[in-house]
């Protein structure tokens, strides 16, 4: 028996065996195949979009790991890094403005404290009215 003939006999024997399988075995095999296909469809999207920039924490494979639809959408659209950058920028600008305001107040209060004018008068709105009257008289 040469190699080709041996191969042909083996194929015949396997095909005969498959046709003679018990119907319960065939049913279980069919169910297992359906389950496997369904799992594959769920796990593997046809196309996977990745953002150009990813967080250092984004080491997980690009599949939805149960993070919710909105998170998946944000990540899919590549919005996570820009949103984070925006938030960080916003916080930095807010701190910077606060710092500038504190410096402005410090310079102004420093001048008020060193001035010879009475603090009691400066803190009184009535003194403001007198100053306004002087302003009008000067014009």
């Amino acid at each position: 028996m040469n190699q080709d003939e041996f191969g042909f006999r083996v194929r015949q024997a396997l095909n005969d065996g498959a046709e003679r399988l018990d119907y319960r075995t065939v049913l279980r095999l069919e169910q297992a195949r359906s389950r496997a296909l369904a799992r594959q469809r769920r796990a593997g999207p046809a196309t996977v979009r990745l953002p150009a920039l990813q967080l250092a924490t984004a080491g997980a494979p690009p599949v939805d790991s149960g993070g919710g639809a909105w998170w998946g959408w944000l990540r899919g659209a590549g919005l996570v890094a820009p949103l984070l950058a925006l938030a960080v920028g916003f916080v930095a600008i807010s701190h910077w403005q606060e710092e500038l305001e504190i410096q402005r107040l410090a310079a102004l209060d420093f001048a008020v404290l060193l001035d010879e004018g009475p603090l009691e008068a400066y803190a009184d709105q009535g003194f403001g009215a007198l100053l306004q009257a002087e302003q009008r008289a000067d014009r």
């Binding site: 107040l105 102004l108 209060d109 001048a111 008020v112 001035d115 004018g117 009475p118 603090l119 008068a121 400066y122 803190a123 009184d124 709105q125 009535g126 003194f127 403001g128 007198l130 100053l131 306004q132 009257a133 002087e134 302003q135 008289a137 000067d138």
Partner: peptide, 25 residues
């Protein structure tokens, strides 16, 4: 108010500023 009045006071000539302080006193 103190900051506002201080700034307002220094927009005036020295004599007017001193006059306002004197009137208040």
């Amino acid at each position: 108010t103190a900051r506002e009045n201080f700034q307002r006071a220094y927009e005036l000539p020295r004599e007017s500023r001193e006059s306002a302080v004197e009137q208040y006193r």
